[in-house]
Every structure is written in C-alpha cells, then in structure tokens.
Amino acid sequence: MSRKPAKGEYIETDTGNKVSRRSQIIGTTNIILGGKTVIQAEVIIRGDLLRTYPSSNPNEKQGTPVAVAIGRYCFFSRGCELRPPGKLYKGSFSHYPLKIADHVFVGPGSIIEAALIGSHVNIGSNVVVGKFAIIKDFVKILDGTVVPANMVIPSFSIVAGRPAQIVGEIAEGEIEGFDLREAYRAVGNS
C-alpha cells in the first residue's frame, strides 16, 4: 500500500502518548491524557459526554470541563470504549467524569463506564464495567466479566463472572506484573 513512510500507525504527542490514527476520540478538549498512554485502533473515547448537572462543590475550577481523565502508562487495546457514566439525579439526566489513574490496561472490546479506576488495574477482553463502578488499585478483571453498576472492587481482588464476583486475591509477588512501562515501550510505530 502506498502509505507515506513518515506516517505510522500512531500519532505521538509531546507527552509521549501513542494514539492510533484509527481510533475515535470524540470531544478531545474534555479529555486529559497524563502521558505515555497507548490508544490502539478502533478505541472510542467519549469526551463529548459532559457533566450537565451543576457541581455541588462551588470551589471547583471553572475551566474547561473534563469528561475523561486518564493517567500515565495506560493501555487501551483495540476496540475498547470509554464512556463517562450517566444517571438521572433529582429529575435531570447528567453524565459524570470517568477517572482512570496510572498503569491501567483495558483489553480488546471492553466497555468502561466506571466512575473511578485506580492504579495498576488489569481489565481483560470483552469486559463490561458498569456505570459508576469503582475499581481500586491492583485489581485484575478476567475476560468476559460483567461488573454491575455501582459495584466497588477493593484492592488486590481478582474478579470474574456475570455479575462480577471476587474470586481471588492478588498474591504479593504479582504486584510488579501490573507495571505497563514495558508494554508501552514495546509499542512500535510502523
């Protein structure tokens, strides 16, 4: 195929993010990327689903609103989707921000509507993380799991099933395995 050699699969940003040209990122001004994050082809990030319900905290900065905040060294595999969760509250429907910390891996085809995902979280393929779920640090979610809405998953849990249940604990020696720096470096741009 006659593709220009300079144009690789990924666009590399100043902070080292590798964003596939074939991903769909909507509402880019409402998305924060911490850096060194990989976004593969066919990934959808819905930055357009903004909060419309006024914040209860008046001290909150009135700058650009954030729909999706992502930390460093995250890895979003082919075809996964990040959607800020939404709900009806006191008569009006609003979306709420989706926050993802560092070293979070999301497998291919998974749909994430969580409120918060902590650091060092590994989400398998074809997982659904329901609305307003909270996933703490060092959690592994196995392939095909459906995490129900509002579920809280504490640190060091292994989660599986439909609906998700805690099926095991992360062993002490598995902690290093969550680091995604190697995975980031392994992504070549060709």
Partner: peptide, 15 residues
Amino acid sequence: CTAPLSVSSTEPPPE
C-alpha cells in the same frame, strides 16, 4: 444474583 443493591426512593422523581 449477588450484585450490589442500591437504595432508591419509591416516589417518582420530582420534575
């Protein structure tokens, strides 16, 4: 089904 239960009002939300 073991999923978490959430509390909600039986009244229809005010509109």
